[in-house]
């Protein structure tokens, strides 16, 4: 299963009730296709960095969807048709998150490897003792 982040921007002139039905509609499409909604994040009204369809503001909604990819195609097809959605962007995030986990694990491993070496310092003289024994053997 893959994790997708579907971001879409709803036109600022849509009413609150319509926004809710729109979000439900989109998430229903995903669940009907066998995907699960991992997270729904309503970022709210934001200023756009540049005008889209002559709008300067928009309601940002981020859906985190776990699925196969087929439902993403369906969602995007629907979003393209709906006029109230002025922009959408889908990003696959599972690989990036896995990579982030790998980095985190490697850092943890490095920290763990560094810690015992410093704590072993009290035991360091042991190595010197071994060397001395070897030298004595050589003399004999």
């Amino acid at each position: 299963m893959r994790l997708y982040e579907v971001l879409f921007i709803i036109a600022p002139n849509t009413e609150e009730g319509d926004i809710n039905t729109l979000i439900n509609q989109i998430s229903d499409v995903a669940t009907n296709q066998g995907a699960t909604i991992a997270k729904l994040d309503r970022m709210g009204r934001r200023k756009l960095a540049y005008p889209i369809k002559k709008f300067h503001e928009g309601h940002y909604v981020v859906l985190t969807i776990e699925g196969t990819g087929a439902e993403i195609a369906e969602i995007e097809r629907r979003m393209r048709v709906i006029d109230a959605i002025i922009r959408y962007l889908t990003v696959r995030i599972d690989e990036d998150l896995k990579r982030a986990d790998k980095f985190r694990a490697r850092r943890a491993a490095r920290a763990a490897a560094r810690a015992p070496r410093t704590s072993r310092r009290p035991g360091a003289p042991m190595a010197i003792e071994v060397e001395e024994i070897i030298e004595e053997e050589d003399e004999e």
């Binding site: 971001l7 921007i9 934001r46 756009l48 960095a49 540049y50 889209i52 928009g58 940002y60 922009r87 962007l89 990003v91």
Partner: peptide, 11 residues
């Protein structure tokens, strides 16, 4: 580049 497409950052 993603942020630009999402109108979060300007082109």
């Amino acid at each position: 580049k993603r942020g630009r497409n999402a109108a979060i950052l300007p082109f």
